[in-house]
Design a binder for these strands. Structure first.
Length: 483
RNA sequence: GCCGGUGUAGUUCAAUGGUAGAACGAAGGACUCAUAAGCCUUAAACAGAGGUCCGAUUCCUCUCACCGGCACCA
């Protein structure tokens, strides 16, 4: 009986082109999801796009476009990313792609708002915002230097009062801390968990969750107050359950998101998202009387040549270009094995190419060729056993240590290479054909196990290898050397 | 400033209170089934100073360096 398994990425904000950092999140999530499929579970995989808010509104206006038209274009771009990364390829269960401008989502967000409101956790308060006359823009504290706008340091920041709805986050300090205590693996890795615990222990302030519609109309209307729209991330977070058809489809919701007693929703997110995912969203769920998430898995960032990627530095890595040149599975391989699952990692084209040649061309690709040439030449038919996955492989998967898991596969590749060098089947086969064929059968068997273990990481490559084994034919070079 | 973390071969990472492992890269060797691939061998590291201990890379303190968090940026 397959168990329902729910996994979601965060939704990227569509104010810029798809980023390699989000490609990492998608690939990590997909690897975990495919592992669950391999185990036989019924997987609900969610991703999508976050499309409301001030930045998008401004960008659209600046581009002379209607906001809806603007986000439609971006959503199409972002939808191509899971395709380019093979997330949609050859899956047992289709992926779900939600846009926060989907009507079913906006309605869910409004329903969610009402539930929090009915719990008494939403109230109208004065909100004092900082405004730079020079920029004609609102400024947040983090944007200011010494209390001044860095672009207009000679102008005084004006304080403007307006009414906003606030979420009473302060009501949830104790409940969140209890929740963390009762769920000691709620955030992975644990150093991120500590971070959020300390943050909560320091005390919580309420936060604004709406904006004046006349100033910024590009948001979900606040139910019962047509002067306000929701602040972007309040509505965006609800996607994790609106994608399941909540509130209408209670059955599907409960099946995948779980129940109060047994939460089932697992979320992937970048390290900049801990507070929102592990604290605010959890408090919102509590307020709405819905089950919490089961677990939040936090990954690091990808730097480029030791620096943050930026257009001005010209070190931005485009995931589409990478896929174009090397292919989907190569990019997946690199992100899985050579980018740390939890910490920041550096990405350079040199490292990428080196890994390609050393591990894919010389390692996996060559092993497939050497074994399958032997099998084809000597007509060795092999019946593939049912696969058993090793303890280190499974254990590392349970801890989300993706690079550890895939390391074990390369250990197996090396072991098979060593074995062939030691047993010399290419000699034995000349003196004792049946003995040689027996040996070759073992290597094919090992190759099949490698292909099986590879399924979550490189689904297309894995299938090519298994097909070659079934047909007993050496395949085309999987990974030609690049010099 | 406060809190937390990290510092191990050229590089990316492991492990351990008692001879520090691997991968990539480098050098050499024997072979040839394979994508001049693979295999074998070699060189190469515990940031610094104290302390506890029979013994510390591992535990403690300090110094230095780096990183992260300290709320309305998604």
């Amino acid at each position: 009986m397959p168990k329902p398994y729910y996994l979601t990425t965060t939704l990227p904000y569509v104010n810029a082109d798809p980023h390699i950092g989000f490609a990492l999140e998608l690939v990590q999530a997909d690897i975990i999801a495919r592992y669950q499929e391999l185990l036989g579970e019924e997987v609900f995989f969610n991703t999508g796009t976050d499309e409301h808010g001030l930045k998008i509104y401004r960008n659209a206006i600046a581009a002379g476009k209607d906001p809806q038209e603007y986000v439609d274009e971006y959503a199409a771009k972002f939808r191509r990313l899971p395709e380019a990364l093979g997330v949609t390829t050859n899956r047992r269960y289709p992926i779900h792609f939600i846009r926060t401008t989907d009507p079913k989502h906006t309605q869910a967000a409004q329903k969610f708002w009402r539930r929090c409101y009915d719990s008494g956790d939403i109230e109208l308060k004065d909100y004092e915002l900082k405004y730079c006359v020079g920029c004609e823009l609102e400024k947040s504290d983090s944007e200011l230097v010494n209390g001044c706008c860095p672009l207009h340091p000679n102008l005084k920041i004006e304080l403007i009062k307006e009414k906003n709805y606030f979420f009473k986050f302060s009501n949830y300090q104790g409940r969140l801390l209890d929740f963390y205590k009762n769920n000691p693996a709620f955030v992975v890795p644990d150093f991120r968990f500590n971070e959020i615990k300390v943050f909560i222990e320091r005390g919580l302030g309420d936060f604004s969750i709406s904006r004046l519609k006349e100033k910024m109309p590009w948001g979900v209307p606040v139910p019962g107050d047509d002067t306000q729209v929701m602040f972007v991330w309040f509505d965006a977070l609800v996607n994790y359950i609106s994608t399941l058809g909540w509130p209408e489809d209670e059955k599907n919701f409960e099946k995948f998101w779980g129940t109060m007693e047994k939460p089932n929703g697992i979320q992937m997110a970048g390290k900049d998202q801990i507070r929102q995912q592990a604290a605010m969203w959890q408090a919102m769920l509590m307020s709405a009387g819905l089950p919490n998430s089961k677990q939040i898995v936090i990954h690091g960032f990808i730097t480029s040549g030791g620096q943050k990627m930026s257009k001005s530095l010209g070190n931005v890595i485009d995931p589409f270009a990478l896929v174009e040149e090397y292919g989907t599975d190569v990019v997946r391989y690199f992100l899985a094995r050579h980018i740390n699952s939890f910490e920041d990692s550096d990405f350079t084209l040199e490292r990428f190419k080196e890994a390609y040649n050393a591990n894919l061309a010389n390692g996996l690709g060559n092993l497939v060729a050497r074994v399958m040439v032997l099998a084809e030449t000597y007509q060795v038919q092999t019946v593939i056993f049912k696969q058993q996955r090793s303890q280190p492989y499974q254990g590392a998967f349970e801890r989300y240590e993706i690079n550890r898991v895939i390391d074990t596969i390369w250990e197996d590749i090396q072991r098979t290479d060593q074995r062939i060098a030691r047993e010399k089947p290419f000699e034995i086969v000349k003196s004792d054909l049946s003995e040689g064929k027996l040996l070759i059968q073992v290597y094919v068997q090992e190759l099949a196990a490698i292909a099986d273990a590879l399924t979550p990481f490189m689904p297309t490559t894995s299938e090519k290898i298994l097909k070659a084994i079934r047909e007993n034919r050496k395949p085309e070079n999987l990974f030609p050397r690049k010099d």
